[in-house]
Structures are given as structure tokens and as C-alpha cells.
């Protein structure tokens, strides 16, 4: 079934970046972009326009064209909780003309249902970032540290929130609850905004979510960051401990990278590996992604593929253990 062969052309119209507006100094500093076998490269995401991965890709291609000589088009293939976008890419040619923006969603979508194609039909190419996943509470609430939160959940009953059901955040909260041996209700919501309201009005003790979804409240000092599930402390919050620092071995890596159809040639992958490293070092891009609290976490193809496989194994195990899937 390949009905979506034609790209989101009209949508892409505004996204076609053929290269004006690069300042002269940037041109002088940057080496010439590497030749690429395709004039147009389609980047597929399951996000709708304006959603998480869509915003990530749009910022990325603005800088990427300095390093790869091609025109990048973003195609939003929504629906089926992400399954449809996986099919779109898996059915594409494995020649580097089509790539997919990976996030844990593509693992979850593959595992939750019998989908025509799964993450196994895609070849992880490179990883670029780890999102900052945080535990936050309202600034004028009773919780000043993670210890307070755990203490309440030990002595009484905690009320914790995650942005979505069947998500990495939910999984992290459940594992923290298990490791800390506490009594907490873990309530899933319909997205980060819904969760934020219930944290702000005191319905929940804490929320677990991406930093990007909380930036408005962080800026207005309405919420306090208590901890991060990331493997290391966040550069923008050096005083905030990781959950691991607090003695609970729960680590969550919300990866953001690229994947292609199975069987991509090595020379194409090599171009992307090189370009990924160069774009991550680009000072303009650095400013943009640091502002979004994205943590650069470059992984080459030979490291990324096993990483995804292991991530999928862990997720499968978690979902099976809890009976979410059989």
C-alpha cells in the first residue's frame, strides 16, 4: 500500500530551502557543502506541522544545507500514532533520497500494534540529540527537592503525571516508582499542556516531561526543575541532579536522529555521519539547539543501530512485563 508516494508538496513549498540568506561570514567560515547524489532529500516525520519533530527538522535543515549540497523537504505523514510515517519511509528507495526523523515514538508505534512496517524495517543512520527529560513541580508548591516528592509518596500517596500514555515519560515514572518502592498514582494526560495545567494548579505533585514543553513556565518562574532522567546533568541546569545521582538506577534517553529504508549504501551513510558532526559544531545551530535544551549526542551508524536495538528490547520488555502487549 503506497498511496502517499507523492510528498506533501504544497506543505513542502514553504520549506524548500534553496539557499539564500547565508551571511557572508558564515560562508567564509564554513567549508563548501559536500556533494550529494540527490538534488532533493525528503525528511519524513510523524509530527504534524509545528509539532516536536517538525520543529526539530525545520531548524536542522536551515543549517544542514551548509554541509550537504541538496534541497531538503519536510513531509509530515501523520496518523496511526506514527505507524504511517514508518511505512512511508520503509517503502522508499534506500538510496539516501528519503530519511526519517527518529524519536522513541517510532519504537512505541511499532510495538503497540500490528503495523505493516516497524522500526526493524528502517536502518538507523545517525543520532544527533538527546532531549532533556525533567521532573518538575510548581514553584510555589511544597516540594523543594526530589526527596520531598519521594518522602510524600512513601508516607502518604504521591500524585505523579506523565504527558502521554504508553510513552517514555510514563515508563520512566513507573520505573522510578518501582525502584523507590513508593505509592504513587501515575496519571497519563493528553499532551504536555494538559499535564502542565494539573501541575500548576496543584492537582499533581510532579510532572515528567520534555523541557521544550515547559519553557514558557520556566521563563516565568512558575515551575521548578527537581531532577532529570537524562544520563548526565543538563548543561542549562547544572545544579539539578539526575535520578541516577539520587540513587535510583532509572535513565531515559529520548533520542533524536535520522533513519532510512533498510539497505542504505555505506557511502551515503558516511556523508551523513560527517555532516551530522559538522552541523552539531556549527555555532549558529549550537545557539538554536542549546536554546531548545537539546543535548548533542552524536552517534555514528555502527553505534546507533545497536543503541536502537537495545532501546527497543528494553521497551518491549517493559511493555510485556506490564501486560500492555502480549
Amino acid at each position: 500500500m503506497d498511496m502517499n508516494r507523492r510528498s506533501f508538496g504544497g506543505l513542502a513549498l514553504g520549506a524548500v530551502l534553496s539557499g539564500p540568506a547565508i551571511s557572508a561570514s558564515a560562508l567564509a567560515a564554513a567549508p563548501a557543502p559536500v556533494a550529494y547524489p540527490h538534488r532533493v532529500v525528503t525528511l519524513v516525520t510523524h509530527s504534524s506541522p509545528g509539532g516536536g519533530s517538525d520543529v526539530f527538522l525545520r531548524e536542522l535543515i536551515r543549517h544542514l544545507r551548509k554541509y550537504i549540497n541538496a534541497t531538503f523537504i519536510i513531509e509530515n505523514v501523520t496518523g496511526g500514532s506514527g505507524a504511517r510515517s514508518i511505512t512511508r519511509v520503509a517503502a522508499g528507495k534506500p538510496d539516501g533520497s528519503i530519511l526519517y526523523a527518529t524519536t522513541p515514538t517510532y519504537i512505541y508505534a511499532s510495538l503497540m500494534s500490528r503495523t505493516p512496517h516497524t522500526f526493524r524495517d528502517l536502518e538507523p543512520v545517525v543520532n544527533l540529540f538527546t532531549d532533556s527529560e525533567i521532573v518538575y513541580t510548581r514553584a510555589d508548591g511544597p516540594f523543594r527537592t526530589m526527596k520531598d516528592v519521594i518522602y510524600k509518596a512513601k508516607t502518604a500517596r504521591g500524585r505523579w503525571g506523565a504527558a502521554n500514555p504508553a510513552s517514555l515519560e510514563r515508563q520512566a515514572a513507573e520505573e522510578l516508582k518501582r525502584q523507590a518502592k513508593v505509592n504513587a498514582a501515575i496519571v497519563s494526560h493528553e499532551g504536555g499542556g494538559d499535564l502542565m495545567i494539573n501541575v500548576l494548579n496543584g492537582t499533581l505533585d510532579i510532572g515528567v516531561g520534555e523541557i521544550a514543553e515547559t519553557r514558557a513556565q520556566l521563563q516565568g518562574n512558575k515551575i521548578r526543575v527537581l531532577a532529570t532522567f537524562n544520563p548526565a546533568r543538563l548543561p542549562s541546569f547544572p545544579d539539578v541532579p539526575t535520578i541516577k545521582d539520587l540513587g535510583y538506577p532509572v535513565v531515559m534517553e529520548k533520542f533524536r536522529g535520522l533513519a532510512g529504508p533498510k539497505g542504505m549504501p555505506a557511502n551515503i551513510i558516511a556523508i551523513w555521519e560527517q555532516a551530522a558532526q559538522r552541523v552539531l559544531a556549527d555555532p549558529d545551530y549550537k545557539r538554536a539547539y542549546e536554546n531548545e535544551a537539546l543535548i548533542p549526542n552524536y552517534m555514528a551508524h555502527d553505534r546507533y543501530a545497536p543503541f536502537i536495538a537495545k532501546f527497543a528490547d528494553n521497551t518491549t520488555q517493559f511493555l510485556k512485563q506490564n501486560g500492555v502487549i502480549r
Binding site: R6, G9, A12
Partner: peptide, 23 residues
């Protein structure tokens, strides 16, 4: 739909995609 709204309407599997490819 295809030109103004930019929706890639379905392509036929039998015929070459002459309409929705063309912009």
C-alpha cells in the same frame, strides 16, 4: 486540492503518477 491546498491525493498504482506529481 493538489495544487492550492497541496494535499498529495492518491496516486494510481496502474497509471504513472501524472497528475499529483506534476505541479
Amino acid at each position: 486540492f493538489v495544487q492550492a491546498l497541496g494535499i498529495p491525493q492518491p496516486d494510481g498504482v496502474l497509471l504513472p503518477s501524472m497528475f499529483s506529481e506534476f505541479r
